[in-house]
Amino acid sequence: MEQCPLCEECQRRGITTLAQVVDHIVPINRGGAKLDMANLQSLCHPCHNRKSGLESHTR
């Protein structure tokens, strides 16, 4: 998160929010690379929870 201290999802919507979670863009259990920086994004808790909830419904 040091590289991107703001929530990337909020930024896409024009909102400035501090990030609190480093998220795997492609989840590890779906083949995402665990330590690949290109597979990581900074998110706030609400955005991370929303993303995780959507992913759990599409399994």
Rank of each mutant, 00 (worst) to 15 (best):
A19F: 04
M1T: 10
A33H: 13
Q41G: 12
V22N: 14
V26T: 13
C10Y: 07
E9V: 14
R12T: 14
M1N: 10
H45G: 00
I15W: 13
C4F: 06
N49C: 09
S56M: 07
T16L: 15
C44H: 01
S56C: 00
L54R: 12
Q11P: 02
E8S: 10
V21Q: 14
P46Q: 06
Q3A: 09
Q20T: 14
E8A: 11
N39L: 07
R30N: 09
C44W: 00
K34V: 05
C47V: 00
G53Y: 01
V22F: 01
S56F: 00
L6H: 06
Q41F: 04
N49K: 05
N49D: 13
L18M: 07
L43E: 03
R13P: 05
G31F: 03
P5A: 09
I28D: 03
L18R: 15
L40S: 06
P27H: 14
H57V: 03
K51Q: 06
P46L: 02
N49L: 01
T16C: 13
C47G: 06
E55K: 04
G32M: 10
R59Q: 11
C4V: 09
N29M: 06
N49G: 02
I25D: 08
S52G: 00
G14Q: 14
R59I: 02
L6G: 01
Q11S: 08
E55Y: 01
T16D: 08
C4N: 15
R59P: 09
V21L: 08
E2A: 14
C4K: 15
N49A: 14
C44D: 11
L54H: 05
Q41D: 11
L54A: 07
E2F: 02
S52I: 04
N39S: 10
L40A: 09
L35F: 07
I28P: 02
L6M: 09
R30P: 04
L43W: 01
E9R: 01
P27L: 12
E9W: 06
Q3N: 04
T58I: 04
C4L: 08
A33I: 11
I28K: 13
R50S: 11
Q41V: 05
V26C: 11
R50A: 09
G32W: 10
T16S: 15
G14C: 13
T17M: 14
L6R: 06
E2L: 08
P46Y: 03
H24W: 12
M37N: 05
S56W: 00
L6P: 02
P5H: 05
C44Y: 05
E55H: 03
D36H: 02
Q11R: 15
N29I: 04
R12K: 15
R13E: 15
E9T: 03
C4Y: 00
N39R: 11
D23L: 06
A33P: 04
V21S: 10
N39I: 03
V26G: 07
A38H: 10
M1F: 07
P46G: 11
R12F: 00
G31E: 04
T17C: 15
K34R: 12
R30W: 11
N49F: 00
L18F: 09
C7L: 04
G14L: 10
C47T: 01
L6T: 09
R13G: 08
P46F: 05
V22P: 02
C44F: 08
D36T: 13
G14M: 12
D36K: 00
L54S: 13
H24Q: 12
E55T: 01
K51F: 01
E9S: 12
D23R: 10
I15G: 05
H24L: 11
